[in-house]
């Protein structure tokens, strides 16, 4: 029983925290509160799903936040009322993210420079590009149809939640059921052996950074639509929340292990804790301290579990 519990360590922690919060605050366990939690978590979720692929291959993507800014600004520039159909800003945002991801993958596979350094570079480049494109100013006055993506509802469900569910399903299936998924684990588990097994390691790496970029593009579009503004300063530090969610969810930064479900739980845990501390009127300064403790705690718990194996 105890072993069983350990296996689902972070899941159990998540449920316990939810139980505690529901005792302390009557508002916590309401539909409207959970709608808020998940809607707010949706952007972090998209980034975290993308970076989970990357981390399983043994890489890292620090440019997520900057990609959110670039793609958000790109979409906003094309989303003024009565200019283009709404599909165009969405498509442009996604394309911008994809291109930046491809750029990351290209440099990493061709130069053999550590992903940490490469994406640290693109993080800075991206921020600069967002400021250049927007001339340093927020871009507002976006069309209603564009603003629907982040603010609209379908059958009473906020659109970001629907996006979250669809993307989670696709990512989860990709990781579990496809060739690419298996190759991602293999590359992260032992890159040399993966190559000697006939896997095109560079292709796999290109794929994960591209996916990460594409999902950052989607997150950028969603965020811009939700705040109805293209903000060149948006997304700063988002990469850290996304990486934290993946790590809390059991993805090892040394590569080779991790699941999308784990990452989803990581995302929700971060969301629930922020929400709970809000409900308890804890100031945001303290929230950051708590979050840090939880990240370290999760990793300690995880390494403790692995030793028990």
């Amino acid at each position: 029983m105890l072993n069983r519990l350990r296996q689902y360590g972070i899941f159990v922690v998540f449920i316990i925290i939810c139980l505690i919060l529901s005792f302390i605050s009557p508002q916590f366990l309401t539909v409207s509160n959970w709608t808020i939690i998940i809607t707010q978590a949706s952007i972090n979720a998209l980034l975290a799903f993308g970076v989970t692929f990357v981390i399983i291959t043994g890489g890292i993507d620090l440019s997520l936040g900057s990609m959110v800014a670039v793609t958000g600004v790109t979409a906003a520039m094309l989303a003024h009322p009565d200019t283009f159909p709404v599909a165009l800003p969405i498509f442009a945002g996604l394309l911008a993210g994809l291109l930046m991801g491809v750029f990351n993958g290209f440099i990493i596979t061709k130069s053999k420079i550590a992903p940490f350094i490469v994406t640290l570079g693109t993080m800075t480049i991206g921020r600069g590009l967002a400021l250049i494109l927007s001339k340093g100013r927020p871009i507002s006055n976006l069309s209603d149809s564009f603003n629907f993506i982040g603010g609209g509802e379908v059958l009473g469900i906020p659109f970001p939640i629907i996006v979250l569910i669809i993307i989670f399903t696709i990512c989860s299936i990709t990781l579990k059921k496809t060739l690419l998924g298996r190759y991602i684990y293999a590359v992260g588990g032992n890159e040399q052996a993966a190559r000697a097994s006939g896997i095109n390691v560079n292709q796999v790496k290109m794929a994960v950074y591209s996916i990460s970029g594409l999902l950052a593009g989607l997150a950028g579009v969603l965020l811009t639509s939700r705040i109805t503004t293209g903000q060149p300063n948006a997304g700063a530090g988002f990469e850290l929340d996304a990486i934290a969610a993946a790590v809390i969810g059991g993805t090892s930064t040394s590569g080779g292990t991790g699941t999308m479900t784990g990452t989803l739980v990581g995302v929700l845990l971060i969301g629930v804790i922020n929400n709970g501390l809000d409900l308890l009127n804890v100031t945001s300064y303290y929230q950051q301290v708590v979050m840090g403790i939880i990240i370290i705690g999760a990793v300690v718990l995880d390494s403790w579990n692995q030793k028990k194996d």
């Binding site: 060739l179 190759y183 684990y185 293999a186 006939g198 080779g256």
Partner: peptide, 23 residues
Amino acid sequence: ALGFIPALSIKDNISLSSLANFS
């Protein structure tokens, strides 16, 4: 170094070089 992926299962390792044939 070159033989297998330690964290993957026997099945996943055995099929690794011919996975496309099973897909």
